[in-house]
Nucleic acid binder design. Sequence first.
DNA 1: GAGTGCGGGCGTT
DNA 2: AACGCCCGCACTC
Length: 378
Amino acid sequence: MLKGADDVVTEQEDSASRHGEVMSWDINDIKLPQDIRQIDWFQEWPDSYVKHIYSSEDKNAQRHHSSWAMRNTNNHNSRILKKSCLGVVVCGNNCSTLDGRKIYLRPAICDKARQKQQRKCCPNCNGPLRLLSCRGHGGYPVTNFWRHEGQFIFFQSKGAHDHPRPETKLEAEARRSIQKAQTAFSPSSPRLKRIREIESLTGAMPRTEALPLLFSKPDAYMLPANFGGHLSKSSWELMLGSCSGQPPYPRAAGEDGDSGEAPTWSRTPSPQHCTHPGTQHILPMKKGGHDTFRPNAGHLGDESCEQKSPLAYGGSCLPPLPYPAPQGGPCPTASGTHQHRQLPAPLRGCEGDMGEGGRRMGLNYRNDDMLFNLYPLR
DNA sequence: GAGTGCGGGCGTT
DNA sequence: AACGCCCGCACTC
């Protein structure tokens, strides 16, 4: 059925990946190679027909993470975990934000949650939301396969995503967090009243530049799925600054250069481009963090259609970033999928712990950062 | 509540 | 048989 597509696989994976014997495996092979010399950094946006071998210590690999919205698919094989792509949730009206960006929400993985999500409306235009199914694998969703074998976790992707990237899991989580906070900060909330009392007593001026982020509809911030990955504290500050009349993030518009091109989200053979060669992360610094699950806190959507705010959809609070984003975002190396770790290094004692620890540290740091910027009134 | 993994079951190719 | 998909359940966060 999908054999034609699978044939493409081999070519691409071989060319885009490494040499010889180690990549000659298939996820369905009875026996997978164990003489792996190099393992890969975790890939957040695997696309096309790629294979990766991760360390069994890699927490992201252990959890079978992906920034694509992948749902578990029963393949009746307990040894091989199969997941298929849910696509992306778009606006049924195909609306754009003021700065021309499209709405690309992350489909909820849970079926019920997804149905609920689709009953909600576009955060930008209140139109209906539409699930754009992934049909990148011979008309079927792109599938990812995970298999734990020895000290390695084998990953294989079949199909090329034919849709934009949704927001990442972390973005979606951040969105929910913000949503909760938003509720806590609703105009009628005691907390806000208290703040206002204090302000009235002290004569303090409200931090108006922060209010849009606090009270506006988070979905207004339809950042590229991987934009959050670039989103440092300073970026947030720039965003905030842009809300208060400061010029938007200067490099934002046309940053990636292919916004005017035909969709590129799925057609790049090498899924991990470095879009910021000048600012790309140095591998040792990203150790454990890789290219992965950086807290993409920028995408602050809101699934709910309630709690509308007049500040919500201005779009001016956002750096006008192009979308869809190019594949991969920043990556630890400039070699596309050739992101391999020399085996001894990742398997060293510090890798698992450092990987996870560093990842978590970074994540927490950034989340704290985000919250710091989001809740300056605290 | 949502994400995730597992597994039964069914329809299609 | 392989595959896609739906569903329910259990577990975790």
